[in-house]
Design a protein around this nucleic acid. Structure first.
Length: 379
DNA sequence: CGTGTTTGACCCGCGC
DNA sequence: GCGCGGGTCAAACACG
């Protein structure tokens, strides 16, 4: 792990405090040792750091959790069908399960292979020719754990056969290989975002308020009649709806390339969040390693502005790919299985976060915290 | 022989 | 109520 940007933010919304953790970094399988060091320091984390060889090169992600900490445990219990004792009520759990079932996360990506390799193990259980698309739609369910309800649909785009549309539904109720945590945390958090819901008008207004982050051709779409709220992450080529250009010229390459829009589909309405998509953040991370310290402030102000101005983007960031945060989630689940209380788990989680020196060394980190007036947890 | 895929039948929700 | 289409089931089949 060469460089890493970590961010723990506290924010208050509608009188409710929540934590926001952002993590941008590079994970190289050959140089990645943090997990192994953790293992040496904390034997309890052994099962959580497996499959290090499958660590992707790029890690980018975010976790959003509600305070106080018992809510963290509650969220985990809802995420884990096997820990029913931690549920506050069966109705709540049923409701969350139903929500998780209905919310969908769709990923559009150029891919020659029949399916995207998302690190998970899938068993195909059906195939259909759907109306309006000559390409068959394949149905898969997660085969890692027998009781896992997560499913995905894979279908080629009718307009462009090189584009593969993968739709995920549900939340895994079992530990995942590290290579699978990125997509899993994305779908899980995005589903949570959908079920929490955000007003289209408020999103639009907040983007207008922060015009620095609004591209010239921001557009809204209301095309869907789907009964399933769906968030679509477009990882394909440059989009006509997204012509965002980085406002300063320290970057050596155009910042409007490969910026796919993030489309949030609430069924009857949808919105597009184009300015800071996953590939954009990945690019941002890559180029941040090349910029001068004096340029950090500009970059971090931009990130801070985006985070604070855009309620949906906060959640979308929460859905961003993260092996770092995903590992923390996995750690918590594993420790709970080993009989530790959620308070113990949270303490160990905080300790692990503080042991990541790279989380404290990047100048952008403190700058972002200052910009956001946020609480710095890793010191 | 165990595991995964294929494929026709079936179920169910939705719109008319 | 009926038809349509999406989604799932399960028996047959393929493969290592």
């Amino acid at each position: 792990m060469k460089d890493h940007l970590g961010l723990i933010a506290k924010q208050e919304e509608d009188g409710e405090e929540s934590d926001l953790a952002l993590c941008l970094g590079t994970l190289n399988p050959k140089t990645q040792t943090a997990g192994k060091e953790d293992k040496a320091m904390n034997p309890n984390s052994t099962k959580l750091d497996h499959d290090l060889n499958e660590v992707p090169d790029l890690s980018l992600g975010l976790e959003l959790k509600r305070a106080p900490d018992r809510e963290f445990g509650k969220a985990l219990s809802a995420d884990n069908a096997g820990s029913s004792s931690l549920r506050e009520s069966k109705d709540d759990a049923d409701q969350q399960e139903a929500n998780a079932k209905r919310a969908r996360v769709s990923v559009r990506a150029r891919c020659d292979a029949p399916t995207m390799n998302d690190g998970c193990h899938w068993r195909k259980y059906g195939q259909k020719i759907s109306k309006g698309n000559p390409c068959p739609r394949a149905y898969y369910r997660c085969s890692i754990a027998p009781g896992c309800l997560v499913r995905k649909q894979v279908q080629r785009c009718a307009e462009d056969l090189s584009i593969l549309i993968t739709t995920y539904e549900g939340t895994h109720n079992h530990p995942l290989p590290l290579s699978a945590t990125a997509v899993a945390s994305t779908t899980s958090a995005a589903a949570s975002m959908l079920m929490s819901g955000s007003s289209t008008s408020s999103v639009y207004n907040s983007m207008q308020m922060q015009s620095q982050f609004v591209p010239p051709s921001f557009s809204m779409q209301f095309p869907s009649s789907s009964s399933h709220p769906t968030i679509t992450l477009d990882l394909t080529a440059p989009s006509s709806t997204s012509q965002f250009r980085f406002p300063h010229s320290f970057s050596t390459t155009p910042w409007n390339s490969n910026v796919g829009p993030l489309q949030i589909d609430y069924g009857k309405r949808s919105e597009i969040v184009p300015s800071l998509s996953l590939p954009y953040l990945a690019k941002l991370k890559t180029e941040s390693a090349q910029i001068l310290p004096s340029q950090h402030a500009v970059l971090t102000d931009m990130i801070a502005g985006a985070i604070t101005s855009h309620p949906s983007f906060q959640s979308a960031l929460a859905a961003a790919v993260t092996s770092c945060i995903g590992r923390e989630h996995g750690a918590a689940r594993g420790l709970v299985r080993e009989g530790l209380s959620y308070d113990d788990v949270h303490v160990q989680r905080e300790e692990k976060m503080m042991k990541l020196p790279q989380m404290q060394s990047v100048p952008m980190y403190s700058t972002i915290l200052n910009s956001l007036n946020l609480n710095h947890n890793s010191q």
